[in-house]
């Protein structure tokens, strides 16, 4: 009698439609091989010893695994890579600085995206899709190109310094390029759409009559915003913050192109360990720890998504 949606009805589960199961198990098998298994391998390699060879590690156990071999090789287990991680201040600094830069970028993103998204929702409904598309469109162009565009702006002899010198704001060129500030600007610019999108959606779907009701009950536009619009948009803000923070922490391209030798970001460190130092166990161990660091925000994001989905918002 209620509107039937595709998902439920209890008797359907009981019948266990076998024909439908292959739709699940084919992609699931794929994901097990190309997602779950690789992560086990990362953990495995992180426990191996570094060797200057190809592949540059002594395997603890290989895929055609035999039990006796396994016992023999157990002796080869090594926490060397992890010890290295904790003893080398480079890694600790990289972790802390990643969290700091990503956190700061998220905050700046929020401060820019919120008023922007709010203003977008105040555009006349006929024009709103156009402006919204315009806001999201840069996201469709290559990430690499967008980061590259900032090199010419931020360099010592770049556009920004030219402009500021011409305006007389500064006397000598600012050193922005190859600093953490440049990385921060790059992250904010690249991930801004991730923040705009959920906030815009959270504000736009609000019933306009809520504001009218607030006004009718005597709230000024200012207080109506803080007491109605803003609280209702919080799930969008949180989703946006997680969508920026999580990938920003592991970012490689931005610190590589905009940062300097002082810039330490864990994603970059992993890359350098892997490609330049050929220290696979250290890179793998750093990846495992980065993943551990991200478990909480990833979990929080998935919880948020499932509550939003279940409330049908």
């Amino acid at each position: 009698m209620s509107a039937n949606r595709m998902s439920s009805t209890p008797q359907e589960q009981a019948q266990a439609p076998k024909r439908r199961l292959w739709a699940i198990y084919a992609p699931m098998l794929w994901m097990l091989i190309f997602f779950a298994l690789p992560f086990l391998l990362v953990v495995k390699i992180s426990l191996s010893q570094t060797v200057l060879a190809r592949p540059p590690y002594v395997p603890v156990f290989d895929l055609p695994l035999e039990w006796s071999d396994f016992l023999d090789r157990l002796g080869l287990f090594s926490f060397e890579a992890y010890q290295g991680l904790f003893n080398d201040p480079l890694y600790l600094d990289a972790y802390l600085s990643s969290v700091r830069v990503a956190g700061l970028s998220t905050l700046v993103c929020m401060l820019i995206a919120y008023p922007f998204a709010l203003s977008l929702t105040r555009v006349h409904p006929n024009w709103r899709p156009f402006f919204f598309g315009l806001a999201i469109a840069p996201f469709c162009t290559s990430f690499l190109i967008r980061v590259y565009a900032w090199i010419a702006i931020l360099k010592d002899e770049g556009f920004l310094n030219h402009l500021l010198l011409w305006l007389g704001v500064i006397e000598a060129p600012l050193q922005i390029f190859a600093t953490d500030s440049a990385v921060l600007i790059g992250i904010v610019y690249s991930y801004l759409p991730f923040m705009i999108l959920p906030i815009y959606v959270a504000i736009e779907r609000q019933d306009q009559s809520l504001l009218e009701a607030a006004a009718d009950l005597g709230a000024s536009p200012w207080s109506a915003f803080w007491r109605v619009t803003f609280p209702l948009s919080l799930p969008g803000v949180i989703a946006g913050a997680l969508l920026v923070f999580i990938p920003a922490i592991g970012e490689f391209v931005i610190p590589d192109l905009l940062g300097g030798s002082q810039t330490l970001m864990i994603g970059h460190t992993i890359w350098v360990d892997f490609f330049d130092n050929r220290d696979w166990p250290s890179a793998a161990a750093a990846a495992v720890l980065l993943l551990a660091l991200l478990l909480v925000p990833i979990w929080a994001y998935e919880r948020l998504q499932s509550t939003i989905a279940s409330e049908g918002l």
């Binding site: 595709m6 998902s7 439920s8 589960q13 439609p17 439908r20 199961l21 739709a23 699940i24 699931m28 994901m31 097990l32 997602f35 779950a36 690789p38 992560f39 391998l41 990362v42 997680l242 969508l243 999580i246 990938p247 922490i249 592991g250 970012e251 490689f252 994603g267 992993i270 890359w271 892997f274 890179a283 793998a284 990846a287 980065l290 993943l291 991200l294 990833i298 994001y301 998935e302 998504q305």
Partner: peptide, 30 residues
């Protein structure tokens, strides 16, 4: 969408959602 309950649904869903936010460096390395 069509099968609300099956063995390993939680793991499956987690495997689907995790790569969306996984740092590329980790996915690539793995």
């Amino acid at each position: 969408a069509r099968t609300p309950r099956f063995k390993g649904r939680m793991i499956f869903a987690a495997m689907i959602y995790a790569p969306l936010v996984m740092p590329e460096v980790i996915s690539g390395l793995a």
